[in-house]
Amino acid sequence: MARNKDRKSAEINSSSMADIAFLLLIFFLVTTTIANDKGLSLQLPPKPDDIEQVDIKIKEKNIFKVYVNSADRLLVEGDPLEDVKEIRDMVKEHVLNYGKNPKMSDSPKDAVISFKTDRGTSYDMYISVLNELQGAYYEMYAARVGVTPEEWRELASKTNEPDMKKIYDEGRGMEEDANGKMVSKFPMNISIAEPSKVGGQ
C-alpha cells in the first residue's frame, strides 16, 4: 500500500495540450480563405492585327444573335426576351438544326452565336447570358458522348489524361482537315462582339 502512495503520477499533465491545439486551430480557421478557383472559362480571339484579313461570308441564317442593352434587356434573334434561361434551348435548337428550318443553321460547324453587349450592361447580366450559351454547348457535347453535362465539364479540365482527352475530342467531333490539322466539326463558336457605346462611361 505504501508503495502505491509513493508512485503518485509519473505522467506529464497533458490536459492543456487540447487548449494549445485549439488556439492554433482557431488561428487557421480565421485566416483560411477556401480558394474558389472555378468559373466560366473563355478563350479570347487573337490580336486584331494577327488575324489574316479574309472576308469570310457567314450566312445570315447561321448566326444566332443575342444582344443585351445598357438596361440589361435581352434581344434574341430580333425579339425581346424576358427569361435568360430560355436562351439555352433556343441555342440548342439553332445549332442542331441541320438545315431543317431555313431560318436556322445549316450544320453545327457553321453555326455561330453572336453575343453583343453595351458598355453599360452589367457584368452580372453578361455572366448569366454567357452561362446559358456555354451551358447549351456543354449539354450538346455531353449528349454526344453519353455523359452528364457535369461529367463533361469535369473531364474538360482533365485533358492531360489521355483517356479523358479521347472522350473530350470525341464530343467535340475532332477530325483532320485538308491541311492535316485537327479541327472540330462541332466548335463552340461563341463570338463576343465589341460592346456598343450607348450607356456607361
Binding site: 474558389n36 472555378k38 468559373g39 466560366l40 472559362s41 479570347l44 480571339p45 490580336k47 453587349t117
Partner: peptide, 19 residues
Amino acid sequence: NDVQIALREADARKLMYTT
C-alpha cells in the same frame, strides 16, 4: 471589355471569369 482588349494585345488569351 477594355481589360479584355488589353489582354488580347498582351496575348494572354486564356481567360476565366471567377464565379
